[in-house]
């Protein structure tokens, strides 16, 4: 997009750059669907424990970016590094085992598994972060799931399904959580609960990439923000800077 924004992308405004090497670094990511060039050279850095708001109007490539990061959509060009080591072209289960977890758009609850089985199915230890997530901790975070452990996963309300999807991802003890449409279609009260959980995770040191339409909330929650326009990064910088710049929001997000 504009030159000044891209400069900002390379040298983030604010204090010293994050002291830790990036947990995940993507360089020049491209992705195609059929003949359609959906991602046209994305660079992203996510430091340990950092949260990134991934923004953009519909069809700009947010979901494709998330899918490419976890390997569900192989990049047609570019590299992905996790802990500085190449994860480019790895299948999703290998990337997941490096500490990345997905809460997808539509939630992806396993309809033929009970709530408890959904939580257990991919449970894994060892992210090295704080104390590990297990069934008790996930149920403490989402008490409503505790009452529904034996129900089929799809017998839940939308909000409960989203809690289940987050809980299921936490059971893999991820260091990076990708949340696509974190609160879409949920009642306001439930949305509030989900945001509060996301802040809790942040406090625990879990890094997050969050796609959400609630601009005010997502910018308040996240450290940094990136805006996709037609498969390119039009903005990358501090979330607070974007929150303060209504003109930029209007121009790139149409809000």
């Amino acid at each position: 997009m504009t030159g000044d924004m891209m400069t900002q992308a390379r040298t983030p405004a604010g204090p010293a750059p994050p002291p830790l090497p990036p947990l995940l670094a993507a360089r020049d990511l491209h992705a195609h669907y059929g003949g359609h060039h959906v991602l046209q050279g994305i660079d992203l850095d996510i430091a340990p424990g950092e949260s990134l708001a991934l923004l953009g109007r519909n069809g700009m490539g947010k979901t494709t970016t998330v899918r490419t990061l976890i390997g569900l959509k192989p990049a047609s060009h570019g590299t992905i590094l996790i802990d500085g080591r190449s994860a480019t072209g790895l299948p999703p289960h290998r990337i997941a085992r490096l500490g990345v977890a997905l809460v997808p758009e539509g939630r992806g609850i396993f309809h033929n598994l009970t709530v408890q089985e959904n939580l257990y199915v991919a449970a894994r230890g060892g992210s090295g972060l704080g104390h590990r997530w297990d069934l008790d901790r996930v149920l403490a975070l989402f008490p409503r799931l505790a009452e529904r452990l034996d129900s089929p996963g799809t017998r839940l309300s939308g909000g409960e399904q989203q809690m289940l999807a987050i809980g299921r991802a936490l059971m893999t003890n991820p260091r990076l959580l990708l949340l696509d449409e974190a609160t879409e279609g949920l009642a306001p009260r439930v949305r509030g609960e989900i945001w509060s959980v996301i802040r809790t995770l942040k406090a625990e040191g879990v890094a997050t990439v969050i796609v959400d339409k609630d601009l005010a909330q997502v910018l308040e929650t996240c450290d940094r923000a990136a805006i996709l326009v037609k498969g390119e990064l039009a903005f990358s910088g501090r979330a607070a800077a974007l929150a303060a710049d209504r003109a930029l929001q209007r121009r790139l997000l149409g809000v």
Binding site: P91, P92, A96, N112, L113, Y120, V121
Partner: peptide, 24 residues
């Protein structure tokens, strides 16, 4: 747990692999 994973992979192959299950 193996049966659980097989059922999960049958229901949603992509989701299962994104959670770290080796569906192959």
């Amino acid at each position: 747990r193996l049966g659980m994973r097989i059922r999960a992979a049958a229901a949603n192959r992509e989701m299962a692999s994104a959670l770290g299950l080796d569906v192959g």
